[in-house]
Design a protein around this nucleic acid. Structure first.
Lengths: 354, 354
DNA sequence: TTGAAAGCGCTAACAG
DNA sequence: CTGTTAGCGCTTTCAA
């Protein structure tokens, strides 16, 4: 067995008794039809015998296409991303592209670093799931150098950047309407970071939904706490802020709409600390329907968004952009769906009713 | 603003008034000291001004090092992998390497494809978290072409392959001893796929632990069901097999040791279907302590393994192998830890005791 | 339909 | 310390 992978196109050419350029043509789908079937077959056989595999670095250098796609996400440890990544990888892989994934922790500086590193690798395009709400330098950089880019789950003020998003406003409305339908009139919100479009849009949608339902909007009835990050710890902190504001034993609200599932889990933690029983004392909704929230205690009522499908769509959008650069840049909005489980119930005062 | 990334080392050289090779040396950490500080500073400034970034394809072609690492895992959607990947990425990234991740679904054929694809990209090494128990073609291929490789969570019959594993046998023993200490004498096992070393080793450790404790080992008292895959659905199926074998209302066991958390969650599903209450009727343990199992209903008693740390260690092992090829190949075994939560309690018969 | 030759951007001898 | 030169493996004109 041969050592190292020194088998190049030249070895194949020698063995098949043809010129290297002929081998190149025979082995490239795009130029394959220029070669006679007989010769092509001989070349393929030689290649297989030798265990040849094309050096992607060399061909990339020549063609200026690396078949690499840069994917930036906040944190792979956040359970919403694995299904998205799986959708991306399955789709990209089918088309011969390889994703390279990097975590940014929602830090613009880190994101910039990551993107410039990927540029060094000459990726053919980007899928960005962690851009800031406005003036994200990474997006600016891609646009300026017109590198194909697709955004996931984040819209950017500057339109004309293709993206795959869910209708967050609608998702929040579904949650609020569900709670209102149950009889809740004082609903609080644990909002996400306002620098991220998801956090911002959901907060706005929350306010609008409350207004649309003619629920009280004065300060005493509309409690909101903003989490600095989309994680459990911040969810707990924000929720405690909400709870602390309660004077006496009576809570100023009977339900909480959390801006995502991680924040909702943080609320569970806060409830546990203060002996609050969900949904008996307070109802709670999340957002994302990430894996296993159906097995929590109580099972979380949340807004489902099709993660895998988002990954697939984003990858397809990007591929189209790469393969025909002129084509219209479009954005895709996917519909969310409310999944009602055990964390929502009638408010305490209405418990005996119905 | 310039278009495309046509800024090469030559542009920088021209602007700094030096030769390209000088630029190359100045910009490479390894050769930087060959250049006078003054010239180096001028070059760095020129590079920054022009927004130059090294073309990794070209340099990789020349040096035969891509600074890419192939990482193969069964499925990123399995929550144990994200922390591992994060550990890998953080460590590799710090050393200037980029991981490319692929899912194999534990399919040897797919794994082979993935590995050969990565070879085409001339990765400098592999981290494999999804190899079969024996004769894995991907491992064979790496070894034959002496490509650096590190295994995660899977040991291979052929020693001399560096790996990072947890002491699975010890983990299972901790679980069994915990249950026995609670008073359980009839303990069942939901085993993982026997073609995977984790499934195989944990099953063996289960049998040995039972014997070591002098618990009954005859067929009537030692129920085992084997899951075909490490997922929730198979966990449920296997658990139902176990439950069905019960004649009458009396279960032939009072506790189940599941080979991992996903299988344990499947057991919860099976319990729910049959109205079995955990831990009142049956106690249950998992393996991995994957994220959020502490919030399940009931919170899962499980064996914790340090996922992030495993990723870090694997990456370090690989880097050492790449950077000094001659160095001794070592394997690392990490100690597991039992985390006792709400899914284990005294057996029904002993409920009134104590 | 195939061969010849040039060159992608970079690094590594070898000179000086 | 810096410049010259050759070439990594591949694709792509241009010829034949």
């Amino acid at each position: 067995m041969w050592k190292r992978d020194s088998i190049t196109i030249r070895d194949v050419a020698k063995r098949a008794g043809v010129h290297v350029s002929t081998v190149s043509r025979a082995l490239n789908p795009g130029t394959r039809q220029l070669i006679s079937d007989e010769v092509a077959a001989r070349i393929e056989e030689a290649a297989r015998d030798l265990g040849y595999s094309r050096n992607a670095l060399a061909s990339g250098l020549r063609t200026k296409r690396s078949a690499l796609i840069g994917v930036a996400i906040p944190d792979i440890t956040n359970p919403v991303f694995p299904p998205i990544l799986r959708g991306i990888e399955d789709t990209l892989g089918g088309a011969g592209y390889t994703p390279i994934i990097a975590n940014t922790d929602n830090d613009p500086e880190r994101q910039r670093l990551v993107v410039s590193r990927m540029r060094g690798r000459h990726v053919d395009g980007f899928i960005l799931a962690s851009v800031a709400r406005e003036n994200d330098p990474a997006v600016t950089e891609c646009l300026a150098n017109d590198l194909p880019v697709v955004l996931i789950n984040r819209a950017v003020d500057d339109a004309a950047v293709p993206s795959v998003v869910t209708d967050d406003a609608r998702g929040i409305r579904l949650a609020v309407e569900h709670l209102a339908g149950l009889g809740h009139r004082r609903i609080a919100h644990v909002a996400g970071p306002q620098s991220l479009s998801t956090g911002f849009v959901r907060y706005r949608a929350f306010r609008e939904s409350i207004q649309a339902l003619d629920l009280p909007t004065d300060r005493d009835h509309l409690a909101v706490a903003i989490a600095a990050r989309f994680n459990e710890a911040e969810g707990m902190r924000a929720c405690e802020d909400l709870l602390v504001s309660a004077r006496g034993s009576e809570l100023p609200f009977t339900a909480i709409v959390a801006a995502n599932d991680l924040l909702a889990l943080g609320c569970y933690d806060a409830f546990a600390r203060r002996g609050i029983c969900c949904p008996r004392d307070v109802s709670l909704t999340g957002f994302n329907d990430m894996p296993f929230v159906d097995k929590m205690n109580p099972p979380l009522t949340t807004v489902r968004i099709p993660h895998y499908e988002m990954g697939v769509q984003a990858a397809q959008l990007l591929l189209r952009q790469i393969e025909k650069p002129g084509s219209a840049r479009m954005s895709i909005t996917l519909a969310p769906e409310l999944v009602i489980r055990g964390s929502t119930a009638k408010p305490p005062s209405a418990a005996g009713v119905g």
